[in-house]
Design a binder for these strands. Sequence first.
DNA 1: GCCGTTTTCGGCCCGACTGTTTTCAGTCG
Length: 568
Amino acid sequence: MKNHQIAQIFRQIANILEIKGENPFRVRAYERAAQKIESIAEDIEIFIKEDRVKGIPGIGKDLEEKIREIVFKGRLQFLEDLKKDIPEGLLDILKIPGIGPKTAKLLYEKLGIRDIVMLERMAHAGRVRELPGMKEKTEENILHGIEIVKRGQDRMDIKTAMDVADLFLAKLKRIKDVKRIDPVGSLRRMKDTVRDIDILVSSEKPKKVMDVFTTLPDVKDISAKGPTKSSVITKDNIQVDVRVIKDSSYGAALMYFTGSKEHNIRLRKEAIKKGLKLNEYGLFKKDRAIAGKTEKEIYRAMGLPYIVPELREDRGEVDLALEGHLPKLVERSDIKGDLHVHSVWSDGGSSIEDVVLKALGLGYEYIAITDHSQGLKIAGGLDKEKLMQKRKEMERLGKKYKDIKILYGTEVDIDSEGNLDYSDTILKDMDIVIGAIHSGFKQSKEKLTRRIVKACQNRHVDIIAHLTGRLWGAREPYEVDLEEILKVSRETSTALEINSFPQRLDLNDIGCRMAKDFGVKLSINTDAHIAEQLDTMKFGVACARRGWLEKKDVINTLPFNKLKTALS
DNA sequence: GCCGTTTTCGGCCCGACTGTTTTCAGTCG
């Protein structure tokens, strides 16, 4: 999958061109192309093979050439040449909040600053304030920004973000002049990772909201405070922005701040085509507002059905909406059970009974207890004898709790050669078998792919769990040939998991979309290790929705009798 | 660099806040 690599190269080019002061629209063209290619759920090499690169919106003759060069040579001469003009370390400087291309260029040209380390030294020495348009305050802000970058507070997982947002929401809701309030930005779009928390408020007394917000006890620093918009850093070094707007514009502002930026740009262009103007205050015909109070009203006024936040990425949703063909996305309430849960029998913290009770509370029809297999000693994997004991326990609980089917299963380890950690005789007695990789992450893409393919081909394996092994903040995904795996899963009717654990969310949204296009089914599981974690299902569902999945694409939306057939 | 139901040239989304400025450029989302 070269898509990611191409996107990265294009982004680097965009940054360098920006610093060089090139035409901003040329810069945008590279950024747009990067975003587009990254969101394509198909390997770009297939586009080349089938000569369809030109058909990708935002890719013209020149960028097509560059894509071909990257795919065939693994590098791009144009970028290599650009790097001769601008030191690579200068690109890191752009990550510092408050510093953009113009400042980076100034720092480089006037002070010879080539990276963050040099910048920090110069700022400490008071040299930055010598530059035009910069004084002590600017210097201070730069040093402060460097601290933030150093702490590595780049992005957080969605659960962390949601917890912080809930905290602020709860406190701001108490202000009686707050009329409506919502989290917006990538959090509302339920992106798997989030950079900062954005909150939108409607109120007739914006100043009061700003005053309360910036003086909350969780606030450590105020980075900006205006009459309608403020930005703070929490004690956990998370940036929270609050924007206050009049209630009559709330819908427009909700759309605007929810984004994505690309979706907004696309909508504004559609508005222009219709002789309208869309901004954060409303949809306007000449100077008259024709919509703005709710999102639905604005979409309708533009001749579009409502587009849910999870779809707003400019990955084709606007065109589908125009045609009236938006998918009807899977919902949390469609989920009838969780198929990947651990208990105290392996490395979990809850008894099977606690898990069952929690599942009953969620209204599930079935719940699978899938503890680790014998070889995975570190996770308390079960040997043959333990398995028999566990089975007895499950049978006992099955009699006690008649309102829910308790499925006897395992998360069986796929070893470094692709063999399973239990014999077929053991596996054939299981209600459900999940195959997963827990070691050998550093193997080659080919070898990892072969292991998974081999596991899919075992007739007892129903689901492959956390396919790429990524753990946000801890482990990068390992590379697999997703298309090859999708082909085999389709042939063998093996489902792929969407692991709802917030640091995993694996497959991710783009992977889900690709699986759907291949006709592969998915299973949204929590991989819970304590009963409470069954609640993380919402994150997996969000991931599925971002991947355009519908109810029919997800096996654990099936009622038990149909699921049983699907698993057999 | 892309793109075309005004167009193969001349556009390309739009507004708030900061820090420096006396009217605005740069940055951000």
